[in-house]
Amino acid sequence: MSQAYVKQTIENNIGYIEFFTPEHNAMPSPILKELELAIKAAGQNDSIKVIVLKSGGDRTFCAGASFSELVAIKNLQEGKQFFSGFANVINAMRKCPKLIIGRVQGKAVGGGVGLASATDYCLATKFAAIKLSEISIGIGPFVIEPAVTRKMGQTAFSQMTINAESFYDAAYAKTKGLYADVFETVEALDGAVTVLALKLTSYNPEALLELKRVLWEDTNEWCVSLLERAEISGRLVLSDFTKEKLKSYK
């Protein structure tokens, strides 16, 4: 695999949405937009009763923001637009009328932790360590914070954000509520995802819809607040500190 993509397949009323980029599944704006639209489309597709969100490859679930695009941001408008991509995907996930199962086969960094947190039920392998590294380059996980905090709690979010250069293993993520279960292999993970998804397709869809609404109760303000957070990140990415950090990594 060498080309970035977002694709959807349907099997047994399960809608599988898969994304991939050759940069360890780091997300540029076009892929974020495609992912947002795919989630919205799956939510309106009557042949889909439950959604599975997954990524291609076997090493990294999602490395967060596209580094090459971060480096190229030249003004506040571009910065806000880029970080709004993650905001729009998270909002699409929480507003989707179908339950979304996360399938996390490898490491999740930054925005990748946000995507996992925005699923309704998340399963992972033991290789799925997590990290919130943004503050170390002068920005912060501001857009994804509401989703991460809602799933893992304020204490876990603050610890990971402040200890920004450390990975937290999958066992920690399970203890804090991000992962419902952790498996030894990708094969075991896929088996568990399939079993759960098939069970959900047999349940009353009206009950599942009401459950989805309850799970995301009191989050309507995210439509505005996540975009405001995107502007904060877009401003900070233009700072001299962050530009120097990005140059050093480049």
Rank of each mutant, 00 (worst) to 15 (best):
Y179Q: 13
A156E: 07
E134I: 04
G153K: 14
K245L: 09
T9F: 02
A230I: 01
K107T: 15
M27D: 08
Q159L: 11
K199S: 08
I17C: 00
L209I: 03
P141M: 00
P205A: 00
G112F: 03
L215F: 11
E18Y: 07
K74T: 04
A129D: 09
I135K: 15
K247F: 07
G153L: 09
M27K: 08
K80W: 01
F20S: 13
I17A: 03
K95S: 09
A87V: 04
N45S: 04
D46K: 10
Y16N: 14
T125R: 03
A124P: 09
G191M: 08
L196Q: 15
E165T: 15
K54D: 05
M27L: 10
G64T: 01
L215P: 12
I51K: 05
K174H: 02
G177I: 06
V148M: 00
P28V: 06
K131D: 04
E184K: 11
T185F: 11
K243N: 01
F167Y: 15
L123I: 11
F183K: 12
G102Y: 00
A129M: 02
P22H: 01
Y179M: 13
N13S: 02
R235E: 06
R103P: 10
R235L: 04
A128S: 15
A124I: 09
A124M: 05
A116S: 15
N91R: 05
C223W: 03
G114W: 04
N45W: 04
I10V: 07
G177W: 04
A41N: 05
I17H: 06
P141N: 06
A192E: 07
L53I: 10
A156S: 15
A129S: 14
F157D: 13
L132S: 08
S239D: 11
A230Y: 00
E228H: 12
R150M: 09
L215H: 12
D120H: 13
T9Y: 01
L178D: 02
K174L: 00
G234F: 02
K54P: 00
S84N: 12
V52K: 01
E217S: 06
T119L: 06
F83A: 12
K245P: 00
P205C: 08
N45I: 04
A41C: 01
A173E: 02
G102C: 04
S66E: 08
K33T: 11
F86A: 14
E210M: 06
V109P: 09
G106N: 15
T194Y: 15
T194L: 14
E165P: 00
I137N: 01
L70Y: 03
D58T: 14
E134P: 06
V6M: 07
T149Y: 07
K74P: 00
F86D: 03
E228T: 05
E244R: 09
V186G: 06
N163T: 14
T21G: 08
N204S: 11
E165Y: 07
A128C: 11
I130T: 15
E145L: 10
S136R: 12
G234V: 04
P97D: 12
A173V: 07
L209A: 04
T119P: 04
G177T: 15
A128V: 05
G110D: 04
E221R: 14
T125S: 05
P28N: 13
G64F: 01
